[in-house]
Computed example of a mutant assay.
Amino acid sequence: MNELWIHFWTRVFEVMTDRVDGPFRFRLVLQPTIATVIAIRSGLKDARLGRPPYFWALMTDPVHRAEMAKDGWRSVGKVFILAMVLDIVFQLIVVHTVYPAGVVFVAFVLAIIPYLILRGTVTRIANRFMKLRSRHLH
């Protein structure tokens, strides 16, 4: 069993390093950039509406969790699907087979992680600027 895990993670590492300098490497910059733009827009909207930082609220507010998850998916879902499609094409061209777990993993890393990290961060920063601005206006 231990050897299976070692083989699995060795294969994941090999396939991941192939993605860095193979065809379609532009997506390694493009997809996180798009996820970042979407996260910034969503984070600023959250701040304007007085919502708490996204990831923290998603983890600590069970009452609104489903609604927040749907909102997040509406925002970043297309980037996630695009990341999956591009990785499938990449795997077919370079590896000549498709590893579904690898497709989901890469899409998660390129789209979901940047979105989750940045949406809440942008909300926190925007809230601080809004508080400073309101102090200066009064």
Rank of each mutant, 00 (worst) to 15 (best):
Val89Phe: 05
Ala69Gly: 11
Leu58Ile: 05
Met84Asp: 06
Ser134His: 07
Leu132His: 06
Met59Gly: 02
Met59Val: 12
Gly72Val: 07
Phe90Pro: 14
Leu116Met: 14
His136Met: 12
Gln31Thr: 04
Thr60Lys: 08
Trp73Asn: 10
Arg11Thr: 09
Asn2Ser: 10
Val15Ala: 06
Phe8Met: 13
Gly22Phe: 07
Phe80Asn: 03
Thr123Ala: 08
Ala111Trp: 03
Ile117Ser: 01
Val37Leu: 15
Thr10Met: 08
Phe8Tyr: 15
Lys70Asn: 04
Leu28Asp: 07
Val29Trp: 06
Val85Glu: 01
Val98His: 10
Val94Pro: 03
Leu44Thr: 02
Val89Cys: 08
Gly102His: 10
Trp9Arg: 04
Arg27His: 15
Asp21Trp: 12
Glu67Asp: 14
Thr36Pro: 00
Ala39Pro: 12
Thr121Val: 05
Ile34Met: 05
Asp18Ser: 07
Tyr99Thr: 11
Ser134Gln: 14
Val104Asp: 10
His96Ser: 15
Val37Trp: 15
Ile38Met: 07
Pro53His: 00
Phe108Ser: 11
His136Leu: 12
Arg11Gln: 12
Phe90Tyr: 12
Trp56Gln: 14
Val79His: 04
Gly77Asp: 07
Pro53Ile: 00
Asp21Tyr: 10
Met16Val: 07
Gln91Thr: 02
Asp61Ser: 03
Gly22Asp: 08
Ile93Gln: 11
Ser42Thr: 03
Ile93Gly: 03
Thr17Ser: 14
Pro53Glu: 00
Val94Asp: 07
Val122Ser: 01
His136Gly: 14
Ile125Tyr: 06
Leu92Gln: 07
Gly77Pro: 08
His7Thr: 08
Arg11Met: 09
Arg25Met: 04
Ile88Asp: 13
Val29Ser: 09
Leu137Met: 10
Gln31Glu: 10
Ile88Leu: 11
Ile112Val: 12
His136Val: 12
Val85Ala: 11
Val79Tyr: 00
Ile93Tyr: 07
Arg128Ala: 01
Lys131Phe: 00
His64Glu: 12
Ser42Ala: 13
Phe105Gln: 02
Leu58Trp: 05
Val94Phe: 04
Phe105Glu: 04
Leu118His: 08
Met1Arg: 06
Trp73His: 09
Lys45Ile: 03
Val95Tyr: 13
Pro100Ser: 10
Leu30Ala: 11
Phe24Arg: 11
Arg119Leu: 02
Leu116Ala: 12
His64Ser: 13
Thr33Ala: 09
Leu4Tyr: 13
Met16Gly: 02
Thr123Tyr: 05
Met1Phe: 09
Met130Asp: 08
Val15Ser: 09
Glu67Asn: 05
Ala126Thr: 14
Leu4Lys: 15
Ala107Glu: 07
Ala126Ile: 09
Ile113Thr: 13
